[in-house]
Simulated scan of single mutants.
Amino acid sequence: MGEVVRRATVADAGELVRLRAVMLAAMAGHEPVGDDWRRAAARTLRTRLAGPDPTLVAFVVERSDRPGSLAACAVGAVEFRLGGPDNPSGATGYVFNVATDPAHRRRGYSRACVTAVLDWYRDRGIRTVDLRASRQGEPLYESLGFVRTADPAMRLRLPPPE
């Protein structure tokens, strides 16, 4: 791989949102609708990537044919929970938004970005890392050491306040 993985900056927010749309389209089978979510995601990225001690980080590979455009990315967040026997600090990494532009797939870019996020966690002493994998992504994550857990994921969507 001739491309270099680098840490994302605030200037990458728009491209990170574009790649998020690529990922969401691949998972849902259709393009995501609306722009409100894009504006909110870009705002979140600009704020959190600029922080002095971020709890959100992204690593990217730029497209060599179009400076300023991204070929791939992976985002990681740090969540803090109460510690337990398997994770005394309670700090847990969460990998998400792993996406590669369709024209740049099968070149190892997602692997390089996820590996950079995992290294970032290791440097901070974070020992537990979670993610949710699509069927297409499972082989990559398994090759990096991720295993299925017995914990079922559940979700509740609360209505907005009146």
Score class of each variant (00 low, 15 high):
Glu3Phe: 10
Ala8Thr: 04
Ala8Met: 03
Thr9Lys: 13
Val10Cys: 08
Ala13Gln: 02
Gly14Leu: 04
Val17Ser: 13
Arg20Trp: 12
Val22Asn: 05
Leu24Pro: 03
Leu24Val: 10
Ala25Ile: 11
Ala26Ile: 03
Met27Cys: 14
Met27Glu: 10
Glu31Ile: 09
Glu31Ala: 13
Val33Trp: 04
Gly34Ser: 08
Ala42Leu: 10
Arg43Leu: 11
Thr44Trp: 15
Arg48Lys: 14
Gly51His: 10
Pro52Asp: 14
Asp53Trp: 02
Thr55Pro: 01
Thr55Arg: 12
Leu56Arg: 07
Ala58His: 01
Phe59Tyr: 15
Phe59Asn: 01
Ser64Thr: 13
Asp65Met: 14
Arg66Leu: 12
Arg66Asp: 13
Arg66Ile: 06
Gly68Val: 08
Gly68Ala: 06
Leu70Cys: 03
Leu70Pro: 00
Cys73Ala: 08
Cys73Ser: 12
Ala74Val: 01
Ala74Cys: 02
Ala74Trp: 00
Gly76Gln: 02
Val78Ile: 15
Glu79Gln: 15
Arg81His: 14
Pro85Thr: 11
Pro85Asp: 09
Asp86Lys: 11
Asn87Val: 07
Pro88Cys: 08
Ala91Ser: 09
Ala91Pro: 02
Thr92Trp: 06
Tyr94Leu: 13
Phe96Glu: 04
Phe96Cys: 07
Phe96Trp: 06
Asn97Arg: 02
Asp101Lys: 14
Ala103Phe: 06
Arg105Ser: 07
Arg105Asn: 08
Arg105Phe: 11
Arg106Asp: 06
Gly108Glu: 09
Ser110Asn: 05
Ala112Met: 14
Thr115Pro: 04
Ala116Cys: 07
Ala116Asp: 05
Val117Ile: 13
Val117Asn: 03
Leu118Glu: 05
Leu118Pro: 00
Asp119Tyr: 03
Tyr121Phe: 10
Arg124Gly: 03
Arg124Trp: 04
Arg127Phe: 01
Arg127Trp: 03
Thr128Ala: 01
Val129Lys: 00
Asp130Ala: 05
Leu131Gln: 04
Leu131Met: 09
Leu131Glu: 03
Arg132Asn: 14
Ala133Thr: 10
Ser134Glu: 05
Arg135Ala: 13
Gln136Cys: 06
Gln136Ser: 11
Leu140Ser: 00
Leu140Thr: 00
Arg148Met: 04
Arg148Glu: 10
Pro152Gln: 05
Met154Asn: 04
Arg155Tyr: 07
Leu156Asn: 00
Leu158Asn: 01
Pro159Ser: 07
Pro161Gly: 15
Pro161Phe: 11
Glu162Leu: 12
